[in-house]
Design a protein around this nucleic acid. Structure first.
Length: 422
RNA sequence: GGAGAGAUGGCCGAGUGGUCGAAGGCGCCUGACUCGAAAUCAGGUAUGGGGGUGACUCCAUCUAGGGUUCGAAUCCCUAUCUCUCCGCCA
């Protein structure tokens, strides 16, 4: 959510900056409603002040029959107040509806562009493996080794669900543990294990609602949603709280499954693990002071990159352009891992700075010291990493001519010493 | 699922129609005392919104949303959450 006052005073600038995301956005209704709101507020508050004053006078009078005329008068005033407040409530609801669907302002440093074509490559790491044979896609490798069963996933649930078996299941679990151990041990994140369903307030706090309800799985009989990312529960941990300045930055790491409808992606990535309705992810979330947030984003990105470096998987870092960053983000870097089976880089992590956008929605503030006024924190998060896609990357990059897959050394302790699958 | 109890400021806790944004305590801040600290004493300590250059002032907020009333932390209704007992359950 953008700052109402900022919008009021800089409407044209806001419109111009939002336009760089693509799509039209007319802020005129905001202006009209905002002005009406302030008119109503002024009038209602004036009458309330009067009522409070007169009611106090009535309280002083011993014999209430002597105050009868004032009581009658205030009865009318109260009715008028109720009328005004009813209209005010309607105006505020409409105003909120508008504010909740306005996306975040892209940071000034974000490259302007309309689609992912205009994203900016920042750096590459690692060498693309020279396999010396035609690389297979991970679904063929996984099926041949008997560690991934797409058909059974479809039988159990439906399309875009997969059964992991044997060493495949263990590989997924090992990666979760490896990632969490690294982030909590070397990078000093605090581990969290949150609920996998959240309520509407939490989804609104991070920006999934009200605009993207069709992407979410909703639970029948409850107004709960399956989380599409751990970002939602973990960021909402501090919803409605005022943190202490010296408690910042707060850095959390959480493993959760993620559930996404993937509406509108029919026909895309239909084979394999790339796009599933349910996938595992280790997520990193930070609450920081505003002046530190862009530096903290760089650090978060580096923390996510470390995982790929330790696993020896080649990747590149891409800075998303204005047309490609998400609704709540001010700035985003994607990490894309090299997939020989597809002969391309594919997203395996997305690291974003939301600045005060989520903090304002979720009311997460901090106080520099006991005397200071509370200020909104900046929130950040990033995948560290998407686990299923990491399995994909390992299968495809570490595949051997004989169909076996070499397990990256860093992972072997987690695999009970196993060096290869197959 | 059945029965009951509760939700008040950073924390504990008083408050059953007006003088209550809320006693008291703890915590925290400032000052005094001290070489310094502890103890003690004095004062100060919520959030959001509106108005004023400013001292300041007005409005709202005692889980949330409705209602009664001239006036609600206090009375009524609903929801949510917490706790206790019974049942069920990994």
């Amino acid at each position: 959510m953008l700052d109402k006052r900022y919008l009021r005073d800089n409407l044209e600038e806001a419109e111009r900056r939002l336009k760089t995301r693509g799509g039209a956005l007319d802020l005129a209704p905001f202006k009209v409603l905002d002005e009406r709101r302030r008119e109503l507020l002024k009038e209602s508050e004036g009458l309330k002040a009067l009522r409070n004053k007169v009611s106090e006078e009535i309280a002083q009078v011993k014999d209430k029959s002597q105050a009868q005329d004032r009581i009658v008068e205030m009865r009318e005033v109260s009715q008028k107040i109720k009328q005004l407040d009813d209209e005010l409530k309607g105006v505020e609801e409409e105003l909120d509806r508008i504010l909740l669907i306005i996306p975040n302002l892209p940071h000034e440093t974000v490259p302007v562009g309309l689609s992912e074509e205009e994203n900016r490559e920042v750096r590459r790491w690692g060498n693309i493996p020279a396999l010396g044979f035609a690389p297979k896609p991970h679904w063929e490798i996984g099926e041949a080794l008997g560690i991934l069963d797409f058909e059974c996933g479809a039988k159990l649930t439906g399309a875009r669900f997969t059964l992991y078996k044997g060493a495949g299941a263990r590989l997924e679990r090992s990666l979760v543990n490896f990632m969490l151990d690294l982030h909590t041990g070397e990078h000093k994140y605090i581990e969290m294990l949150p609920p996998f369903m959240v309520n509407r307030e939490s989804m609104t706090g991070t920006g999934q609602l009200p605009k993207f309800e069709e992407d979410l799985f909703h639970v029948e009989g409850f107004d709960y949603f399956l989380i599409p990312t751990a970002e939602v529960p973990v960021t909402n941990i501090h919803r409605g709280e005022i943190l202490r300045g010296n408690d910042l930055p707060r850095c959390y790491a959480a493993y959760t499954p993620c559930f996404r409808k993937e509406a509108g992606s029919y026909g895309k990535d239909t084979r394999g693990l790339i796009r599933q309705h349910q996938f595992n992810k280790v997520e990193l979330v930070k609450f920081v002071k505003p002046q530190d947030s862009h530096q903290e984003l760089d650090a978060l990105l580096a923390d996510a990159e470390t995982i790929l470096q330790r696993l020896g998987l080649p990747y590149r870092v891409v800075e998303l352009c204005t047309g490609d960053i998400g609704f709540s983000a001010a700035k985003t870097f994607d990490i894309e891992v090299w997939l020989p089976g597809q002969n391309t880089y594919r997203e395996i992590s997305s690291c974003s700075n939301f600045e005060d956008f989520q903090a304002r929605r979720a009311d997460i503030r901090y106080r520099e010291d006991d005397k200071a006024k509370p200020e909104f924190v900046h929130t950040l998060n990033g995948s560290g990493l998407a686990v299923g896609r990491t399995v994909v990357a390992i299968l495809e990059n570490c595949q051997q001519a004989d169909g076996t897959v070499t397990i990256p050394e860093a992972l072997r302790p987690y695999m009970g010493g196993l060096e290869r699958i197959g």
